[in-house]
Write a protein that binds this DNA or RNA. Structure first.
Lengths: 343, 343
DNA sequence: TAAATTTGTTTAAACGATTAAACAGGTTCA
DNA sequence: TGAACCTGTTTAATCGTTTAAACAAATTTA
């Protein structure tokens, strides 16, 4: 059995004062009014007994847990864990702790996770929700639970969010390929109706159109997130074969880029001569590829910090809705520029 | 202002029964004894009012939060986030939620984090503690707070832990290099007295000795974790120059490998012909290097699962101390085998 | 038919904190 | 000198649960 933890009661008993007084002293309330000797005595005893605030009791009384719930797609993914780290640090600045969970892009898991976090009375949530979770989101709104969506959002629901301008980012990336002499451009992305991925497709298509390149459906490959490894390989094979064979490819996310590059590595293809490659999201490791990857950088630190600030503003002050769209940054490296030296 | 959440009291009032009865019904206690109609009515009302258990209140009463505190070095690091994901999933199986924090290998941060988690009354902890945290660990023991160290441990303190057999792993890696014709083998690791890293150095030195290769101090480079990028580059330059120039290198962790490889990439060196490379820890992305990396795989899933199981066993049943050391696995790829085809 | 048991429900204390309000004793003011 | 004010502290309610114990009414037992 665990030894009982010391409570205000124990300190009060030992000091011969009331519980209330102990609470006032340890919280520095009623500053001027408390007898200095007694205050010191209480503090000494608290230290001596190794007193530690019971946040659970405090939370129950104050109806505030100083906890933020974070739901990402998969904490082991580079994108999510980088974001988690930023959110952790920023939350800490305001005295909040983070509880997290991974949804695996699965609406059921997401819903269950949300339930757990709400039962734990988190003060608010930062989430990258999967598809088909509109109902849950609307329910949060109805219950006036503070939350901020990050990375993605539902265009039909009026919520807080911090997201990338995915249309522009994809447009910019595609344009970059075109400007560097590519015209047979393929794209591989996940086959989901997630709005932010739809936007990337839209940006890709728009850039082609604006540059008078016909959009060919066969060049836009959608892979299943579960079977991604195989699907990506099949997609690449298909894109590289036949009369419509591509000369450039746009990977729709860091995980797609990772599997895609591995496969390209195994083929007898040279990047960027035979094939230019550009990707979404930063992963330092993508620099290890012999032709370091050109990619669209998402401003993760700003996104994470903004999300936390917005959420805490909502929790502590008002419930104003804010929607922030940030611009991606095109980082040009060797994978899209012929003859460019390794960076 | 947030709308008040529904409590047992609200349900009781609406159903015209006592709070206790509502609690019994919703927790399926006193199964046989409760009037079925009333039970159904209570459940209906609970659903209708969107009732959700207040875990905070429950925890206060039961003195159990069903929460595990997780302290890693840096959640944004691949190693940590992979572990976090495994721990998350395993904990969930037992009905536990995870609160996490990153220590940045900093004892002060670690201590503060520990404080926060304990204030929140976590039922137990899984931690990869930084150096100089013996005092904190001993204090946890004194207070009989269940915890399991992971990845590292203090040889002088008798605690639960799950760790790699770092000596054997480093020995095995070094031996592999030697067996493949290398004799001038360098190592780059962090300059800390963390026991698990000491073990790696020891394994490296032992393998050299057992194979009659003189251990040269100049070939073991220790870099500062803060300045690692620059330090690693300097170390590599130094290892590759002069009469003692190496023909193989052992990177002591995934982050060192990442920076190291990037730098090697920028030099006019061919791997494995000019230099064989082996590393600790798996990162899928290390496969993107033109000579996919030979590495020591840590059995992360087993480590994470074991740690969770041990911890929960401690929390729910006894306080037996268990120490688990797992063997690493040598995964041979192209970076150490001359003429080996890309994998 | 009185005692014992069962059934279904309520009462009430407790978990560990916070905090408004009350209070006793001393000072100050007019 | 009595009202008003300070000072330092305590009282007591409350947050939302859980759960042992009490209880009233119905049923069974002997």
């Amino acid at each position: 059995m665990l030894p009982k933890k010391t409570s205000l009661k124990d300190i009060a008993a030992k000091a011969g004062v009331s519980i209330a007084l102990v609470s006032y002293v340890l919280n520095n309330k009623k500053e001027g009014r408390i007898n200095k000797d007694i205050a010191q005595k209480i503090k000494d005893i608290a230290r001596q007994l190794n007193y530690r605030t019971n946040q659970i009791a405090k939370s129950l009384k104050t109806n505030k847990t100083n906890t933020i719930g974070l739901i990402v797609a998969d904490i082991s993914n580079n994108f999510s864990s980088n974001l988690a780290r930023i959110i952790e640090d920023e939350a800490d600045k305001y005295g909040y702790t983070v509880i997290f969970g991974s949804s695996d892009e699965n609406e059921k898991k997401f819903s269950k996770l949300l339930d757990t976090l709400l039962n734990r009375q988190v003060d608010g949530l930062i989430m990258a929700p999967p598809i088909h979770s509109e109902k849950e989101i609307k329910e949060l709104i109805r219950q006036q639970i503070p939350f901020v969506l990050i990375d993605r959002f539902y265009p039909d629901i009026n919520t807080n969010y911090v997201a990338l301008d995915n249309f522009s980012a994809a447009y910019m990336g595609t344009k970059h390929l075109i400007e560097n002499g590519r015209s047979r451009i393929g794209m591989i992305t996940y086959g989901t109706s997630l709005h932010h991925l739809e936007e990337r497709k839209r940006g890709y298509a728009a850039a082609l159109k604006d540059n008078h390149i016909a959009y060919k459906k066969a060049r836009l490959k959608e892979v299943d997130i579960i079977n991604r490894k195989e699907d990506i390989e099949i997609a690449i094979d298909s894109l590289l074969s036949g009369p419509l064979a591509i000369d450039a490819i746009f990977f729709g996310s860091n995980s797609i880029a990772l599997h895609g590059l591995k496969y390209v590595n195994s083929l007898d293809i040279h990047v960027p001569d035979d094939l230019a490659i550009i990707s979404f999201d930063e992963t330092e490791a993508l620099d290890l590829f012999y032709a370091p990857l050109t990619f669209i950088r998402q401003p993760l630190p700003e996104m994470g910090e903004t999300a936390v600030k917005m959420l805490i503003e909502n929790i502590e002050r008002n419930n104003k809705i804010t929607q922030v769209v940030m611009e991606g940054q095109l980082i040009v490296k060797a994978s899209t520029i012929e003859n460019k030296q390794k960076v």
